[in-house]
């Protein structure tokens, strides 16, 4: 469904991604792991067109999407939950969710989607009239994911959902992501929390210095000596 081929990306003069190749199949969940600065966020930003790639191609359903503006990429059914959650702080929880279904297709299903998202995240239903900026970190993460789901995406991209959250909250967040996965939505998850990410995903890629250095089924990666030493501290 999603295919990234030989992708180069840079911020100004600094090359961040070099020849990255990656694919996500229908309903598949894929993790991209790597240290801080390995280019994980840049990869997601390139896929959602927030960043123009320098080279290579990004295909969704075999069509190139790397020259579309971000709002057209979203319209294809790719939801990007950005790093740091980025909820709209001055709007209520419900307004944030409603804006997740801004595009015509998702808007037609807005009521149904709201009920669905509130079903997955009952906490958000309790706080629907509250300003998003006043939520706790964990609640903001749920809101950011819920807002992404309002798009009724076929691919949900999550950038560091565990960032800055207490271990118990990380646990809950990943349970929720597992629930979303069961709905048949493909997930592309970028994480520093390697154990959690590979625990959830079917397959994984290890990004180092902007290159894919390893890839394979999650179980193989978890048992890989390099991964054990470099990312799991074993």
């Amino acid at each position: 469904m999603l295919e990234v081929k030989d992708l180069d990306a840079a911020y100004g003069e600094v090359m961040v991604l070099r020849g990255v190749g990656l694919s996500v199949g229908r309903g598949e969940s894929v993790a991209v792991i790597g240290a801080n600065g390995a280019g994980k966020s840049t990869l997601l930003r390139a896929i959602s067109s927030l960043l123009r790639p320098r080279g290579g191609a990004i295909l969704f359903d075999s069509n190139r999407v790397d020259h579309l503006p971000p709002y057209e990429v979203a319209a294809l059914g790719i939801a990007h939950v950005p790093e740091g959650r980025r909820v709209l702080p001055d709007m209520t929880v419900e307004e944030n969710l409603e804006l997740g279904a801004y595009l015509p297709g998702p808007k037609a299903r807005r009521r149904e989607s709201l009920a669905w998202v509130y079903g997955i995240f009952p906490r958000l239903a309790e706080r629907r009239r509250q300003r998003a900026g006043t939520l706790s970190g964990g609640e903001q993460q749920m809101l950011a994911i819920g807002r992404g789901l309002m798009l009724r995406p076929r691919l949900l991209m999550l950038d560091e959902p565990s960032l800055g959250l207490a271990p118990l909250v990380v646990e809950v967040t990943f349970q929720k992501i597992a629930e979303v996965r069961k709905e048949g939505i493909a997930i592309l998850l970028v994480e520093q929390n390697v154990q959690r990410a590979l625990g959830l995903a079917d397959r994984g890629y290890v990004l180092d210095g902007g290159r894919v250095v390893l890839e394979g089924p999650s179980q193989d990666l978890l048992e890989n000596p390099h991964v054990k030493v470099a990312y799991l501290g074993l």
Binding site: S48, L50, P69, P70, Y71, A74, A75, A79, H80, P82, R86, L88, P89, D90, M91, E95, E98, L99, G100, Y102, L103, P106, R147, L151
Partner: peptide
Amino acid sequence: KALRAVAQDREVSMLLGID
């Protein structure tokens, strides 16, 4: 609401499908 979203976070507004 889309206007307010652009004012609060332009990049996120694009991810939501706003031009």
